[in-house]
Design a protein around this nucleic acid. Sequence first.
DNA 1: ATGGTCGTCCCACGA
Length: 266
Amino acid sequence: MEIATWNVNSINARLHAVTAWLSEAKPDVACLQEIKTVNEGFPLAEIEALGYNVVIHGQKSYNGVAILSKTPIEDVTIGLPGDDTDEQARYIEAVVAGKDGSVRVASIYLPNGNPVKDEDGNLTEKYKYKLNWMRRLKDHAAAILKHEEPLVLAGDYNVIPEAKDCYDPKAWEGDAAYRAETHAQWRAILNLGLTETFEQLNGRAGEYTFWDYQRGAWPNNMGIRIDHLLCSPQAADKLTAIRIDKHVRDGVKPSDHVPVIGSFDL
DNA sequence: ATGGTCGTCCCACGA
């Protein structure tokens, strides 16, 4: 089965692009981020018409995540466990049916975290929230890894793993996506025993998933790779391909992110 | 050196 992740930057502003890509790529599962609507505002009929079951964790104006699946969905977890006071809709997890057993999938919109420092040079609440959210993700990933089942944590991590994953490392020094504390948390998550699919099967430099709307980032290929699929051993062992649908960035009114698709013998 | 782009929703804020 193919499992995709895509930050669509508003499901309603992007409906034309989302339906076109789903019709063309036909992923079995699509994890969407930044849907930017409450559940009631999600264009459910249009997505269901393409053969998808849908679960949504929406929020007014900001954030919001969803999972679309051609196979039945069950056992849905709304929100990242670990902080009942967190009101930002950035995590939804569900179990979908594979060809020979179930697969646990999460759609993740990890906080951006910028700006990192305030005018006094202290870490901002935004950056501290990002780091704390990453700790919570690590704790929750550790808990669900104990199931020893196929698991794919897919999403916009707002983490540039290495220098080769951005057009100009110097331009990203100090950014919340590329700081030492962010990288330490990223490694801690991977060190639970998760495999990052792109690094596993491709790993080439200069392969990006995001190009800013500003400063001619797309025509000048000034991109970064921040959208990732992390897999449990039971999923990583079945990983057969990984691709980035870069052409989507050239469409009419595109998202600033493009889909990343993992193929699994699951 | 500076500003530049989107989406939400109408005013800045978030990215």
